[in-house]
């Protein structure tokens, strides 16, 4: 056995690596959604691809799967987290400079390269914008490679919109067709009201030549896929990102199965037809 193989055999895949929080940013008013920029203490880490996730670990509390919401050139990784459970709520109190654990990156990536020469439709619901943001960055970096780029983003209410500065910037740059809507407007909300699927229904892309990436609650992805299909986007060129309980991210713990698929290993990004049974059969 080679030295490397021996070292790998002895490596505990559930052991987190220490990473430092370089920056913390509140995404919504009460800080329930926040963004961390992280760098590895060791100085080296595998580069994540858009759509992949890391297991973020908090000493003494536990671990949670969070997709990357940006990938920086210097190896830093950005995660956007919603505080909804014991681990993420504990994470909410952390500050710049503190050390957390990271395992990853894991899972499949959005097929950004396959969208070259095509129109690209990105449909995001709620915090589902976070896993799609690295795609926007990748597209803007090589804008000429793509046809029309449409980003449809729906949230529950104006206060739930994340990445607001960046949304404004994208709106101003006009390199993509950004459409934002909320389910419930407020008195001071000047933007659109309605569900995200209606933004897709309005078209503005060549369905037959388009590739679509959808991320949000399952119902939203299901209806978005229908709207995309109506607009001529082939189901096999529609991609969704699934959410299940990922505890080990290695295909060992069995929690994230959808039919024959381990979301951690075979996903989270799947072509829509692969996930169609999960959308159709209740509680699969």
């Amino acid at each position: 056995m080679s030295a490397l193989a021996a070292e790998l055999q002895g490596h505990e895949p559930m052991a987190p690596e220490p990473w430092r929080i370089l920056a913390v940013r509140r995404e919504v008013a009460d800080g329930e959604v926040f963004t961390w920029t992280l760098e590895p203490l060791s100085g080296r880490a595998a580069t994540a691809r858009p759509g992949q996730f890391n297991m973020l670990y908090l000493f003494g509390v536990g671990e949670v799967a969070i997709s990357v919401s940006a990938i920086e050139d210097d190896g830093a990784v950005v995660h956007t987290i919603r505080a909804v459970g014991s681990v993420t709520r504990a994470m909410q109190g952390l500050r710049t400079g503190e050390v957390v654990g990271v395992r990853g990156p894991f899972g499949t990536a959005w097929p950004v390269a396959d969208a070259k020469g095509r129109d690209l439709v990105l449909a995001a619901g709620g915090i589902g914008l976070a896993p799609l943001r690295p795609v926007v960055h990748a597209v803007l970096a090589r804008r000429q490679d793509f046809g029309r780029v449409l980003l449809c983003y729906g949230a529950r209410s104006p206060r739930d919109l994340i990445f607001r500065d960046e949304l404004d910037e994208w709106q101003v740059r006009r390199e993509l067709d950004l459409r934002v809507t909320v389910d419930r407007g407020t008195a001071d909300w000047k933007g659109d009201v309605g569900v995200v699927t209606q933004l897709i229904d309005r078209g503005g892309f060549d369905g037959r030549n388009a590739l679509a990436m959808v991320c949000g609650p399952e119902v939203m992805m299901r209806f978005s896929a229908l709207s995309l299909h109506r607009r001529g986007v082939a189901p096999e060129r529609t991609f969704v990102s699934m959410e299940r309980s990922m505890r080990c991210a290695l295909g060992f713990c069995g929690h994230c199965q959808i039919g024959p698929h381990f979301v951690c290993r075979d996903g989270p990004v799947f072509p829509y037809p692969v996930m169609e049974p999960a959308f159709r059969v209740n509680e699969l």
């Binding site: 559930m14 505890r247 060992f252 713990c253 069995g254």
Partner: peptide, 13 residues
């Protein structure tokens, strides 16, 4: 083979 992963901190942290 399904398993759960539990975090067990000691009292001293």
């Amino acid at each position: 083979f399904c398993a759960q992963i539990e975090e067990r901190p000691d009292l001293e942290g």
